[in-house]
């Protein structure tokens, strides 16, 4: 998966029920352009940045993120290199599986009309 696909997948995970219109308003990208991007049209840099900024804000809202960061700081201090490697391998495998399990959803015309 390329960076655009990963970003869109992540966005859809964070905003699963969002209509095209809502995505357009949130990203400040024209609605027909949003439709094309979600169907694979190459993104411009500023469009990618718009999606990524929203994703970062959404992630930062989650209380688990702060807990996870704090936990990892503790882990670096007390776990052995072997144990840290195990955690690294576990997360790598989860990420890899997720990336390869990406279901690219194509929005149909009905959704465009609803938006």
């Amino acid at each position: 998966m390329n960076k655009q696909q990963i970003t869109i997948q992540r966005y859809r995970q964070l905003f699963p029920q969002e209509t095209l219109r809502e995505t357009s308003i949130r990203t400040n990208i024209q609605i027909t352009r949003v439709f094309r991007l979600l169907n694979g049209k190459p993104m411009k840099v500023k469009e990618l940045e718009a999606f990524e900024k929203i994703i970062q804000h959404k992630i930062a809202e989650k209380p688990e993120m702060a807990k996870l960061k704090s936990l990892m700081d503790e882990a670096f201090a007390i776990l052995s290199q072997y144990e840290l490697n195990k955690i690294y391998d576990y997360i790598s495998r989860k990420n890899y599986l997720k990336k390869n399990s990406a279901l690219v959803t194509c929005l149909d015309d009905k959704e465009l009309m609803q938006a």
Binding site: M1, K99, N100, S101, A102, L103, V104
Partner: peptide
């Protein structure tokens, strides 16, 4: 496997 998953893999 799901078709998309199979294709990616």
């Amino acid at each position: 496997l799901h078709p998309n998953v199979c294709a990616n893999l």
